[in-house]
């Protein structure tokens, strides 16, 4: 692992923190660009390739860094554990379910070392949690949260999307975790333009795990990902077609159902569309800036939780280029 400075790295201050961005793929570059535009001193760290885990990383490589943002394709948990033990706060854009579970298990380690570990700070999970918290303010009681995602950030994200369709998807259903086959449960989901309607399916996505943590009162939490027939047929096979190196356009859509004080039912929907790497990079950068400035509580932090100022992070992500769109019509009840 090698590090190179973008700008002039210096010991951080709350006004201009020094932030390391690990992984210089499309998401890492988008994150670094937004942090640099914001005035942060950015240390770009070329991550080990997929499967190399923490590689030859030494915490000493990041001396003087206020915070590290993990954007690499490989598993984040091993590297996050080493950084947290070295006393460095971490923001991870991990989206693989197993990796997210491993990161959540680092809560005690982060607490004992007095640092925050933000898990899932990309588009999904990440923006999905912020949007769910935004919608939760519009209903008195949150009963159901349903997330749908379209598109991939970069090659590593595309591989993760491919693998997730071949594995069982989790959903929170009346107090217990259900596991259903990936690629099942087709639902036509309407995303903001220009993505519009896409067939979405169950997959091994991390959103339900993190959203259930943020909204323990919700009876049902689920997530689906868009896919075509080729994606579903080949999900359990290696990828035949190499993913595009630059990623593609995508969208995230969050639907919250609940009850109002007068017992009426309410369904509210919000989404965002754009280049996936840009959306994820904006959220990761906004989270990093807020974490560096406000010092959230020690331990694992999830976007959408009440321990972080979701409105502030979402507002900053919007200023970094995320365009939010609310559905204004009568939302049709889905069968989720």
């Amino acid at each position: 692992m090698t590090g190179e400075a973008a700008g002039s790295p210096r010991s951080g201050s709350p006004a201009a923190p020094t932030i390391a961005v690990v992984g210089m793929g499309v998401t890492g570059r988008a994150t670094a660009d937004r942090l640099t535009e914001h005035g942060c001193a950015v240390v770009s760290v070329h991550a080990p390739r997929l499967g190399d885990e923490a590689g030859s990383f030494s915490p000493g490589d990041l001396t003087g860094v206020d915070l590290a943002v993990l954007c690499q394709g490989a598993s984040h948990a091993p590297l996050a554990a080493r950084l947290v033990r070295a006393g460095c706060p971490v923001v991870s854009v991990a989206d693989q379910l197993d990796d997210v579970d491993d990161l959540l298990a680092l809560d005690e380690v982060a607490r004992s070392n007095g640092v925050a570990l933000v898990v899932g700070a990309g588009m999904s999970p990440g923006l999905s949690g912020l949007l769910a918290r935004h919608l939760a303010a519009q209903v008195a009681v949150v009963e159901e949260i349903h997330v749908a995602v379209h598109g991939t950030g970069g090659p590593a994200c595309a591989r993760q999307h491919h693998e997730s369709l071949g594995r069982g998807g989790i959903a929170w259903h009346d107090g217990e975790w259900l596991e259903r086959p990936g690629g099942s449960g087709r639902e036509l989901c309407w995303f903001p333009e220009p993505v519009d309607a896409r067939d979405c399916y169950r997959a091994a996505l991390a959103d339900p795990r993190l959203l259930q943590r943020c909204f323990p009162q919700a009876r049902r939490v689920s997530a689906r990902v868009s896919a075509n027939r080729r994606d579903r047929l080949t999900a359990r096979l290696p990828m035949f077609i190499p993913p595009r190196s630059g990623g593609d356009e995508g969208a995230v859509r969050v639907e919250v159902r609940g009850a109002q004080h007068d017992a009426s039912r309410e369904t509210v929907v919000i989404g965002a569309a754009g280049r996936v790497a840009d959306l994820a990079g904006a959220v990761a950068a906004a989270t990093a800036v807020e974490v560096a400035a406000r010092q959230p509580p020690d331990g694992v932090v999830v976007l959408g939780d009440t321990t972080v100022d979701a409105a502030a992070i979402l507002g900053r992500a919007q200023r970094f280029g995320v365009v939010l769109q609310e559905f204004t019509g009568l939302a049709r009840a889905t069968a989720w």
Binding site: F327, G329, L330
Partner: peptide, 9 residues
Amino acid sequence: PQQGGWREV
């Protein structure tokens, strides 16, 4: 959807 649409926030 039979009515409505997306509005920028």
